[in-house]
Write a protein that binds this DNA or RNA. Structure first.
Length: 462
DNA sequence: TCGCTAGAACCA
DNA sequence: AACGTGGTTCTAGCGA
């Protein structure tokens, strides 16, 4: 028997077998199970020895016992269930996209005056900033030259007719290659797509999804929603979705104890709109779309350490305007600024931060004398309690929802703040009601947890 | 041919 | 002065 000490920290927990014979595979499987069990016993006893309970009654041991272990069989069932894909829908989208992409290629080559590989940012940069001589002043640069990313091209939109063509090409090419063409290849014999949910990847406690990633299926554009429409419920069944509304901001309000934010959520007011009204000094119903958008950027950005410079780049404001914007934001929310400062101090003293449920993430670089490393560590440290507490809540919600589902209903997907269940059509409404109730009462933060539900025969409708 | 990084895109 | 956080996948380009 191989000692655990020789396995831990080596990145592997099994002897290497090529697993081409049934004997090898059997030994491998046995060794895998054995090593997992021995690691479990060892790590569990470490948690039992450590077991320090926080002010909310949670410890890492309880986190393991009450959240992480119960999630395991639920994730397994979700992976096994899979979600049905209508490949015909994607086929139609694919041929339409193929035609448009070819058309765009032709127009782009005409405008460029030569053919080049549009999949290569280096070649595209040479065309734009070299051959066509577009201005590069103030544009974002990478290691290899001036960036050609979408936010940079947006600034050049009116500088040359080739720019909007390239932006459309990029969008369509990405969606076709990553989703429209790739997903049908992964459909199993049951007509369904089976992702893998990874429980131990994201450093904040979120899940991740691979092969394929079903947590980044497009939604923002019209075409994106069309692609979502290819994920369907079988005949006689529906998809039910339930998603938390602005949960990270609600968590931040609760953790900081900011009365203003808490009152806004209690009153059911749109926080981005409220923020805009405060920052621009106008009434709630006078807030314009642009003002709300800027407030949304600041609500999320400032919380995670966005600088005045970053805000000005993201919104197009002048640097001084952005700085004033952030200053006013924190004047209105003094408790939030206090909370962020205290979190950084805690991180400096302890070299980790934690979620309300006791999940920890180390931040050793918090004491670095290198500005970039240190400020990066500070942003992570501040983010962990917020994103991580929300992640813990999602997991608790999964456990409670899974427990309450009838045998003929299946939990299919978790996209962070959203759960998708497949149910018999007649049970759709009841499942939606149950999810709203259960997800909303997973924990009492002193801030209401609003849950929106939708029912449809495909994901695009949700 | 394969493994790696960079840059770009998609999501929360 | 400086880079909002957390993920996955795709292609190009490079070197072993």
């Amino acid at each position: 028997m191989i000692p655990i000490s020789e396995m831990i920290g080596t990145g592997k927990t099994q002897t290497t077998f090529d697993r081409t014979t049934i004997e090898d595979a059997t030994i491998y499987a046995a060794e895998d199970a054995d090593m997992s069990w021995r690691l479990y016993l060892k790590l569990r006893s470490e948690l039992e020895a450590q077991n320090d309970v926080n002010e909310h009654g949670w410890s890492m041991l309880r986190l393991a016992n009450d959240i992480e272990w119960p999630i395991v069989p639920i994730l397994a069932e979700m992976e096994i269930a899979g979600i049905k894909l209508d490949t015909k829908v994607l086929g139609e989208i694919g041929s339409r996209l193929g035609a448009r992409i070819n058309q765009l290629k032709g127009e782009i080559f005409d405008q460029a005056g030569e053919e080049f590989n549009m999949g290569s940012p280096a070649q595209l940069g040479q065309i734009l900033y070299g051959r066509l001589g577009l201005p590069t002043a103030g544009l974002k640069k990478g290691k290899t030259g001036v960036s050609t990313a979408a936010d940079v091209l947006e600034k050049l939109r009116d500088a040359h007719p080739i720019i909007p063509l390239i932006m459309e090409f990029r969008e369509l090419d990405k969606l076709k290659n990553t989703y429209v063409d790739a997903l049908p290849e992964l459909v199993g014999a049951d007509g369904r797509i089976h992702t893998s949910f990874n429980q131990t990847i994201a450093q904040t406690g979120r899940l991740s999804s691979t092969n394929p990633n079903l947590q980044n299926i497009p939604v923002r554009t019209e075409l994106g929603r069309e692609i979502r429409g290819a994920f369907v419920a079988p005949e006689g069944r529906v998809l039910v979705s339930a998603d938390y509304s602005q949960i990270e901001l609600r968590v931040a309000a609760a953790l900081a104890g900011d009365e203003g934010m808490i009152e806004t959520f209690k009153a059911g007011i749109d926080l981005h709109q409220q923020t805009a009204a405060e920052l621009y000094g106008v009434k709630l119903d006078e807030v314009t779309k642009a003002q709300r958008y800027a407030a949304k950027t600041i609500n999320f950005g400032v919380l995670y350490g966005m600088s005045a410079h970053g805000l000005s780049v993201a919104t197009g404001m002048e640097g001084r305007e952005a700085a004033g914007f952030i200053e006013r934001y924190f004047e209105v929310r003094p408790k939030l600024r206090e909370y962020i400062d205290e979190t950084k101090k805690f991180a400096y003293d302890n070299q980790y931060t934690a979620t309300l449920f006791g999940r920890r993430r180390a931040c050793p670089e918090i004491r670095s004398t290198n500005f970039m490393l240190r400020s990066g560590a500070e942003r992570m440290a501040v983010n962990v309690p917020i994103q991580g507490t929300a992640a813990d809540i999602y997991k608790l919600a999964m456990i409670d929802v899974a427990r309450k589902l009838d045998a003929d209903c299946d939990l299919l997907l978790q996209i962070h703040d959203e759960l998708i269940v497949e149910a018999p059509t007649a049970k759709g409404e009841a499942v939606a009601d149950m999810m709203r109730e259960v997800m909303g009462s997973v924990i009492d933060l002193g801030v209401p947890l609003a849950v929106d539900t939708e029912i449809g025969v495909n994901w695009g409708e949700l």
